[in-house]
Design a protein around this nucleic acid. Structure first.
Lengths: 193, 193
DNA sequence: CACATTTAAGATCAATCGATCTTAAATGTA
DNA sequence: TACATTTAAGATCGATTGATCTTAAATGTG
């Protein structure tokens, strides 16, 4: 009854996400997206509505795919100190192999849009809070297991750790050295002893 | 011999700086700048070259004026723990009165331009390093004066503190609560004990 | 096999961008 | 006072933006 779509929507969204991640929203033109995805202008608009819809879909995909890749380790019932250290190992590794040199897409989006779009702001602040809560849970388990200082102010340290991770994202995007990133991670983990 | 300029260059640059600080480079149009400064298009171009020249002059002014307002306390020969705490008090106060709700202009610039402009990248990384060094000097004095833990890994903590400050900038721009900012500051200072 | 529908491709739209150019007023010197 | 120069104001430039429209190929049903 109808012609079948020739391109894969998920694959297209993935390519668009990486381009938006690197260049931001305004600096990415629809023509850039057409060239990068190989999908014609009309194809993108029929699948995602408009440029803004495509960007928001890309940010949502980033949360599900990349943020989960970085912090998903914390989403187990008994995640503790080992999982927190694992998160920082992943961050370090993704800086080394280049996948985090463009920073965190949520941090970049927070800076570009500030508070000008409600849906994006909710996505950003919601995911920041989610990270903070996951760190807080893991720290609580770590305290109970005797793996960290027993007088640790858990919630406060969780908030502070999340903030450090956002700061690292800025430094990565600014092109800071791997050695500096390693120092920050060391200092962050030493707080726990 | 020649007609005198009718507008004040410094005052104009100050207005442009605040607009760029809030909206970033690409989202600020030359027409916005004309409206905001009250100076005609041709006046801006004769005084600053082009939009890029005006932006870079604004970033340089930010470094001299705002960054100095925040971190200048550290630029005394015997700055120590009290001065470090003072820096965080200033950051907190500037968040409360709204002056830091748009984040740090250098962080915003780092995110928007990534590494695409050499002069801006040098300004950003240079000022990041300057902050790190100032914190490091003050921490060294604080250790010598017995105001902080004597086994403090000074350089590493200085790098980590600077990273936290960049993370706070992102959170401010994203519209985080004052209470959260206070928690991060508390956790940062508690590391020193 | 015909037909209604949806697709892909790209021409084209008005709007906006940064930048330049034109014009005329203001200035100080000769 | 007359003139060369620099200013301010704004019209206008080509380029680029996101979005729409036109056209024709592809598809599956009746």
């Amino acid at each position: 009854m109808t012609r079948t779509r020739e391109f894969d929507v998920n694959e297209t969204l993935d390519k668009a996400m990486h381009l938006f991640w690197e260049k931001g929203y305004v600096e990415t033109s629809v023509r850039d997206l057409v060239k990068c995805t190989g999908v014609a202008h009309a194809g993108l608009y029929s699948a995602f509505g408009d440029k803004e819809g495509l960007f928001k879909a890309a940010v949502r995909k980033y949360c599900l795919k990349i943020a989960d890749e970085m912090f998903g380790v914390l989403d187990h019932d008994n995640a503790g100190r080992a999982e927190i250290e694992h998160v920082f190992e992943i961050i370090l590794q993704m800086n080394k192999d280049g996948r985090l040199r463009k920073g965190c897409m949520l941090v970049n989006t927070a800076v570009e849009f500030s508070g000008t779009d409600e849906e994006l702001n909710n996505l950003v602040l919601g995911n920041f809070k989610k990270l903070e809560n996951a760190l807080s849970r893991a720290l609580t388990h770590a305290v109970a297991a005797g793996k960290v200082r027993n007088d640790l102010p858990v919630k406060r340290i969780a908030t502070s750790m999340a903030t450090t991770i956002h700061g690292l994202s800025v430094l990565s995007r600014a092109g800071i050295s791997i050695a500096t990133i390693e120092q920050v991670i060391l200092a962050t983990l030493e707080q726990l002893d």
